[in-house]
Computed example of a mutant assay.
Amino acid sequence: MMKIEVSALHVYPVKSLPGISLQSARLEPTGLAGDRQWMVVDDNGRFVSQRNTPAMALMGCELGDNQLVLHAPDHPPLALPLEPSTGQHAAISVWRDKWQALDAGDDAARWISGAIGQGRALRLVRADAARPRTQSQPDRYGPHTTTHFADGAPYLVAGADSLDRLNDSLSGQAGGAVDMRRFRPNIVVTGLPAFEEHATGRLQGPGYDLELRYPCQRCVITTIDPDTAIADPAREPFRTLATLNPMPGNPRAPAFGENAILVSGAGATIRVGDMLTALPRKT
């Protein structure tokens, strides 16, 4: 039997900003506690990401003492309460999903516009627990699955062995190896053979059960160096990954990691070092 272990946990408090590595996290139906509860939007309420604003890679965030603290080069930190007492609702969208979020206020808007706006008026919004985001893909992730500001499913699971296989293929190329930050997973596991997560149906840990539902299609964010915010001119590792592990039915697009939902264990704690049992995907 394979020995599968949780080797890393990451939350991304603000969508498309760098993540925070944790030793443990609470599992919720909407994802790891604290994950993607904030988001940057333009003046039309559309989400802003590294796809069109690579400078987001150079920002930072931290959680502590009931507040979110944002950092950006040449700007003082911005501290925001995790549970704002007031806030105007704003119409926002993530891909095809449209719903309401809480606006973080004018001070936050001025800060985020100055940090990464590049002449655009941007705003920061927070997920409203009273107005959950209903999934636009119920056939893929289940009719009762809700998320905050993740692109698709509440969880993204990635295999460390898959990254090793990719880096073996990148060996000798100008850009060299890449690290897991390019792929922004929530849960990283070791022990699954490379890309075997796509054939895995469930990962069961102590008191929780995750169901892996669909490969995660990758985009140009994978080409952005998280230390410089500069995209690789050869579009690596996107190009190599598309050859090595293409999306089902779309060979031009690469897959990396599996979108997942929580089947049971809401409120349980997942920890680095947890040993997992893998169940094959039903066909």
Rank of each mutant, 00 (worst) to 15 (best):
P143Y: 03
Q137K: 01
D179A: 02
L58G: 01
F149D: 06
D35E: 08
L17V: 11
Q135W: 06
T190P: 02
D107Q: 12
E62P: 04
G201F: 07
L276V: 14
G265D: 10
L78Q: 11
F183N: 08
G117S: 09
H10C: 14
V94E: 13
A278Y: 03
F47D: 14
P248Q: 13
A108G: 08
R252A: 08
P73T: 09
Q37L: 15
V189K: 09
S24H: 15
R165P: 04
T200Y: 12
R202V: 06
P54W: 07
L58E: 01
K15V: 11
I221S: 11
G191E: 04
G105V: 05
T223S: 05
D227K: 15
A55Q: 13
R133E: 00
E83A: 14
A229P: 03
E196G: 06
A253P: 07
S264T: 10
V11M: 05
K282S: 15
I116A: 11
Q137G: 00
P246H: 00
L163R: 00
G205Y: 00
L17E: 06
T277E: 12
G201T: 11
S169L: 15
N167D: 01
G64F: 14
L124K: 08
E196A: 15
R120E: 13
P77F: 14
L9H: 01
E211N: 00
P76E: 15
G159N: 06
A55F: 14
L279H: 08
C61K: 09
D179P: 02
N250C: 11
G60H: 08
Q118C: 13
K282A: 13
S264Q: 13
F183H: 07
Q135K: 02
L166Y: 09
A104S: 09
I261N: 02
P206G: 12
T277L: 11
D128M: 04
V14M: 11
F195W: 04
S171W: 00
L58D: 04
Q50D: 02
I261V: 15
I230Y: 15
T283H: 10
D65W: 13
E62R: 15
H75P: 01
A8G: 08
R140Q: 14
V41W: 07
Y214V: 09
H148W: 14
W38F: 09
I270E: 03
V48M: 08
V188Q: 12
L262F: 01
